[in-house]
């Protein structure tokens, strides 16, 4: 019996940090929302009046940008763990700017589509694209906000922070929206153009 409790205690210390765990559950929840939207897309695509959409090439540029930002934020975390605050700041700001550039490029993509007469009128892949990509961009914006808070803290806080948990959470979330984008892009390439 005592042995068992000891083992349970060891298990407690090895447990994931509660905030990180919360983030994982939250990401599961976000997956459900995008699963809802993309499955609605598939249901709809089998019905009359469906129009496919051709992705403007600018979405490829934004893909490269968000992939780059995942790289910079990965390096930022490494700098943090090496206590290299200057490098951390620089890489975080770089990530932040790449994030802003991503949203800007998405906006350009929307404008290109609008020029191609893909407006809110109708009920094809184009209308879903605005909703789904728009919602994804909103979640990237949330990530940018988190980065902004973390970067500001390195300038403002008097006490040095050694816990890497907040940064790790931001990094995990950032990789998540990145992966989500890759999924959405492939989804639209496969189901959106036919």
């Amino acid at each position: 019996m005592i042995k068992k409790i000891e083992m349970e205690n060891n298990a407690i210390t090895k447990k994931m940090h509660p905030s990180k765990f919360t983030l994982w559950v939250a990401m599961g929840s976000l997956v459900m929302m995008f699963a809802g939207l993309t499955s609605a897309f598939i249901v709809k695509s089998n019905q009359t009046g469906w129009k496919p959409v051709t992705l403007p090439s600018v979405f490829w540029t934004s893909t490269v940008v968000i992939l780059l930002s995942s790289g910079t934020i990965f390096l930022a975390l490494r700098s943090f763990k090496e206590r290299n605050i200057a490098g951390y700041r620089l890489l975080m700001i770089a990530t932040l700017l790449l994030g802003v550039a991503f949203i800007g490029l998405q906006w350009v993509g929307f404008e290109k589509l609008w020029e191609q007469q893909v407006t809110f009128k109708g009920s094809g892949a184009g209308q879903f694209l605005y909703v789904i990509f728009g919602f994804h961009a909103l979640h990237v914006a949330g990530g940018i906000l988190a980065l902004l808070v973390l970067v500001t803290k390195t300038f403002v806080e008097k006490v040095k922070i050694y816990s890497s948990v907040p940064t790790e959470i931001a990094v995990t979330y950032w990789h998540f929206v990145d992966l989500l984008w890759i999924y959405l892009l492939i989804f639209f390439l496969v189901f959106g153009q036919r």
Binding site: G28, S29, M32, M33, F34, G36, L37, A40, F120, Q127
Partner: peptide, 16 residues
């Protein structure tokens, strides 16, 4: 956590 986000997607499409 798994079902409310789906309602949110439905509500967003309705708002659109």
């Amino acid at each position: 956590v798994l079902s409310f986000p789906v309602l949110l997607s439905g509500a967003i499409l309705l708002l659109f």
